[in-house]
């Protein structure tokens, strides 16, 4: 065990740990992608009060927002296969990463739907009425008038969400995914030098979330400039 902290090991572990960055990135991209699509669907179901779907969405969003991500990961990861098995789909040969991606996607959908919903409702009612009065259909109104305006309002929150999602990927290792944290833990249990691995992780997480934040602030400024 020896010394508590060896700075040389930080440099030694860095390449090994960052080599798993693509897994983290994949989770973030898929979670945001699935979240946006499913989230828009949920938001619309609630906006237009589609029967049954509306109630289901309310419960779903409340559940996801009211329970820890780690519990959701376990329930989806281990419960979902049982459900699929019931309807006769054999999932034994599926990569476990797929289930993690599904879990993160489903989690993000709830948060995205809330962002989209409040962005859409922030567009004044007059805009809808004006669009209908010139003969646009519901779908046209949504696509041409409402969504572009809502997009601007939602953008900063969307940015925060991306950063949050990135940080939340730090829980994927609990399901045995060998991402950056999983790698650091594996090194830790092999060499009893856990702390160095955690320092590497902290540096990577700090750097990436700061870069992401900077990108979004820059993009937000550009968007606002273009509006004028």
């Amino acid at each position: 065990m020896g010394s508590l902290f060896d700075i040389r090991l930080v440099f030694e572990y860095f390449p090994t740990i960052i080599s798993r960055f693509h897994i983290t990135l994949l989770i973030v991209v898929v979670a945001i992608g699935v979240g946006l699509l499913l989230g828009l669907f949920i938001a619309l179901a609630r906006m237009y009060k589609i029967p049954i779907l509306n109630q289901l969405s309310i419960v779903y969003v409340s559940f996801i927002r009211g329970t820890p991500l780690i519990v959701q990961l376990f329930i989806i990861y281990y419960g979902f296969p049982l459900l699929l098995d019931e309807i006769g789909i054999d999932v034994t040969q599926w990569e476990k990463l797929y289930f993690v991606l599904i879990a993160y996607g489903l989690n993000n959908a709830a948060f995205m739907s809330e962002i989209i919903r409040s962005a859409i409702s922030s567009v004044a009612v007059g805009q809808h009425e004006a669009a209908y009065s010139v003969g646009l259909s519901r779908w046209q109104t949504l696509r041409r008038i409402i969504l572009p305006q809502a997009f601007l309002t939602a953008f900063p929150v969307f940015g925060t969400r991306v950063v949050t999602t990135f940080e939340s990927t730090s829980l994927a290792f609990t399901l045995g995914i060998l991402d950056m944290i999983g790698q650091a833990q594996a090194i830790g249990s092999r060499t009893y030098h856990e702390l160095e691995g955690y320092v590497v992780l902290a540096i990577i997480f700090i750097a990436v979330s700061m870069i992401l934040e900077k990108i979004f602030i820059y993009a937000e400024k550009r968007l606002i400039l273009n509006r004028r």
Binding site: Y78, G79, P81, L82, D85, V91, T92, K96, L175, G176
Partner: peptide, 15 residues
């Protein structure tokens, strides 16, 4: 490789 506490659960889930 699966942690002990998730091994039996993985068996349940047919993983």
């Amino acid at each position: 490789s699966i942690e002990l506490k998730n091994l039996l659960l993985s068996l349940d889930a047919k993983k």
